[in-house]
Simulated assay, not measured.
Amino acid sequence: MGTAIVWLVGTIVTLLIWMIIASAILSWLFAFDVINHRNRFVNQLASFLDAVTSPLLAPFRRIIPPLGGMDITPIVVLLLLNFGRILFYQTLAGPLIRTLG
Score class of each variant (00 low, 15 high):
A31W: 02
A4D: 12
I75T: 13
R40A: 12
I12Q: 03
L79M: 14
V52I: 14
T14M: 10
M70W: 09
T91M: 10
L8A: 15
M19W: 07
L78Y: 03
W18Y: 12
W18F: 06
I86E: 15
I35H: 04
L29E: 04
D71Q: 06
V52C: 02
I86R: 15
T91R: 00
F32L: 09
V76G: 13
L67E: 03
L100H: 01
P74Q: 13
P74W: 00
V6T: 12
F83K: 08
L67S: 06
I64K: 00
W7G: 08
P95T: 06
L57S: 06
A22E: 01
V13D: 04
L81M: 05
I64Y: 03
I20F: 13
R85F: 15
I12K: 04
L80Y: 02
S27W: 07
L87A: 15
T73V: 06
M70N: 04
I17G: 04
D71F: 03
A4V: 14
Q44V: 05
S27I: 01
R98G: 00
N82W: 15
V77P: 01
P55V: 12
F30T: 08
P55Q: 05
I63M: 12
P95N: 12
L56Y: 01
G68W: 09
A51I: 03
G94K: 13
G2R: 00
I20H: 13
S27G: 09
G10N: 12
